[in-house]
Amino acid sequence: MSYSFSVKAPNKAAAKAAVAAEFDKVVASQPIHARDRAAALANAGAAIDALVDDEALHVSVNLSGSVGWRDVLTEAGDNPLTSVSISASASLFKPE
């Protein structure tokens, strides 16, 4: 299953919150992504944190990813992930 979304926010903290809120929507429609949520948010957060602090600029974030899994459940009742892909990009832009 895969996902892809973009968010824009006035600052880094708001961008991280917006990414988390959008990822929660992904998990609501594709529950398997609860398994890679922490990794995806960490990846996006690292990209956001790498940006310079500039109060005159806003933050744009693109996040996409996918997971693959085995159809056989483990003893714990979950599907073992066999692949995970996470791609995050963050950039600053001048608001209009």
Score class of each variant (00 low, 15 high):
residue 46 A to L: 06
residue 29 S to V: 13
residue 12 K to F: 11
residue 78 D to G: 15
residue 61 V to T: 07
residue 88 A to M: 05
residue 55 E to Y: 04
residue 90 A to H: 02
residue 69 W to G: 04
residue 81 L to I: 09
residue 7 V to K: 10
residue 27 V to G: 08
residue 90 A to C: 06
residue 48 I to A: 01
residue 49 D to N: 10
residue 89 S to K: 07
residue 81 L to V: 11
residue 53 D to E: 08
residue 18 A to V: 10
residue 72 V to K: 08
residue 92 L to T: 08
residue 52 V to L: 02
residue 75 E to R: 15
residue 72 V to Q: 08
residue 7 V to F: 11
residue 44 A to R: 00
residue 36 D to N: 14
residue 25 K to P: 00
residue 63 L to R: 04
residue 53 D to F: 00
residue 68 G to N: 10
residue 25 K to I: 07
residue 56 A to V: 03
residue 56 A to R: 04
residue 85 S to W: 10
residue 66 S to N: 05
residue 7 V to H: 10
residue 18 A to Q: 09
residue 14 A to F: 03
residue 25 K to G: 06
residue 49 D to R: 06
residue 39 A to I: 11
residue 70 R to L: 13
residue 56 A to C: 00
residue 40 A to F: 02
residue 39 A to V: 13
residue 13 A to S: 15
residue 82 T to V: 12
residue 14 A to C: 11
residue 38 A to N: 12
residue 25 K to N: 11
residue 50 A to N: 04
residue 50 A to V: 01
residue 67 V to G: 00
residue 24 D to Y: 07
residue 48 I to V: 09
residue 61 V to E: 01
residue 43 N to A: 13
residue 41 L to I: 06
residue 66 S to F: 07
residue 53 D to I: 00
residue 72 V to D: 09
residue 8 K to I: 13
residue 41 L to M: 03
residue 87 S to L: 12
residue 63 L to N: 01
residue 29 S to Q: 14
residue 42 A to S: 08
residue 24 D to I: 11
residue 22 E to Q: 15
residue 5 F to K: 07
residue 13 A to T: 14
residue 79 N to K: 14
residue 49 D to T: 02
residue 2 S to Y: 13
residue 94 K to R: 10
residue 29 S to T: 14
residue 86 I to S: 05
residue 10 P to K: 12
residue 14 A to M: 08
residue 28 A to L: 13
residue 27 V to Y: 09
residue 49 D to H: 05
residue 1 M to Y: 14
residue 23 F to M: 07
residue 96 E to K: 07
residue 51 L to Y: 01
residue 72 V to N: 05
residue 9 A to T: 06
residue 30 Q to V: 13
residue 83 S to G: 10
residue 64 S to D: 05
residue 67 V to Y: 00
residue 2 S to K: 12
residue 18 A to W: 08
residue 34 A to M: 12
residue 45 G to H: 01
residue 4 S to I: 12
residue 74 T to C: 14
residue 31 P to E: 14
residue 79 N to E: 12
residue 77 G to T: 06
residue 46 A to W: 02
residue 58 H to N: 05
residue 64 S to P: 00
residue 18 A to M: 09
residue 58 H to I: 00
residue 42 A to M: 01
residue 51 L to K: 00
residue 22 E to H: 14
residue 92 L to I: 03
residue 58 H to W: 06
residue 73 L to F: 10
residue 4 S to Y: 15
residue 4 S to D: 15
residue 58 H to D: 01
residue 75 E to L: 15
residue 81 L to A: 07
residue 52 V to S: 05
residue 81 L to K: 04
residue 40 A to I: 10
residue 79 N to D: 09
residue 89 S to D: 10
residue 68 G to E: 11
residue 54 D to Y: 01
residue 89 S to N: 10
residue 16 K to A: 12
residue 46 A to Y: 03
residue 2 S to I: 04
residue 21 A to F: 08
residue 43 N to D: 04
residue 96 E to S: 07
residue 73 L to V: 10
residue 1 M to G: 14
residue 2 S to L: 07
residue 78 D to C: 14
residue 2 S to W: 13
residue 65 G to H: 02
residue 69 W to K: 06
residue 92 L to M: 07
residue 75 E to C: 11
residue 87 S to Q: 15
residue 68 G to H: 07
residue 47 A to Q: 06
residue 91 S to D: 02
residue 78 D to L: 15
residue 3 Y to S: 13
residue 34 A to C: 13
residue 86 I to P: 03
residue 41 L to T: 04
residue 69 W to F: 15
residue 77 G to R: 11
residue 93 F to C: 01
residue 18 A to G: 09
residue 59 V to C: 02
residue 45 G to L: 00
residue 16 K to D: 09
